[in-house]
Amino acid sequence: MTPLLSAQSLTKTYGGRTACAGVDLDVTEGEVLAIVGESGSGKSTLLSMLAGELAPDSGEIRYRDREGRVRALHEIGPAELRALSRTDWGFVRQDAAQGLRMGVSAGGNVGERLMGLGERHYGHIRTRALNWLDRVEIAADRIDDPPTRFSGGMRQRLQIARNLVTAPRLVLMDEPTSGLDVSVQARLLDLIRRLSGELGLAVIIVTHDLAVARLLSHRIAVMRAGRVVETGLTDQVLDDPADAYTQLLVSSVLAA
């Protein structure tokens, strides 16, 4: 089966510094792919390229649209690309302030994509927002509160609701659990796993936390200095790492 999203030989250089070099990857529905590596390894650059926010210097990203057509991202015009990113894709950011409208209520945050798609019935928007807040375990009576009054974990859950309300097929996540308390992290991980399974989402999650990768992902790509040094089944790569750098990463994790 053709993957939902695939990237071939993605390369991106910033003023002589290589952020990504020859990266290949693909992901399909119902699959969680983790991209791990230390900061500066090119994970976030890669994610920005996959989201269509950053053009690669070379290489190609292909996406299979809802009609089953496989299309190169660079051939999709900006209008359609933005429409795709609002409907077919989701992007959960590390910093909730970048992924949410902090001055807008939780309900407005969730409803924005619906309104962007032309929903013009306040009652319907409200009902769907409530439903999604419930699914991400945010109490209904918080619907009119802005995210500034939410805890870190709630903000991330709200980001998820805001992204999933249009039933996207691909969700990109950039360090969604970093900076959260451990117990809060667990709740978020559980939620992401449950929803991605239930909805059959393709998820690409960037994380520096190997435990997060292990618990959430089916497959993993280990990045170092802009290159994917090892890729495969998550548990295989983490339990029987072949590459020297992966061995170092795995052995550097503090055992709990």
Partner: peptide, 18 residues
């Protein structure tokens, strides 16, 4: 440019919710 005006309705939504 792309006539993406969902955000304008977010403003009105906020009004009603408040």
């Amino acid at each position: 440019a792309l006539a993406e005006y969902g955000l304008m309705h977010v403003k009105l939504y906020e009004d009603i919710s408040r």
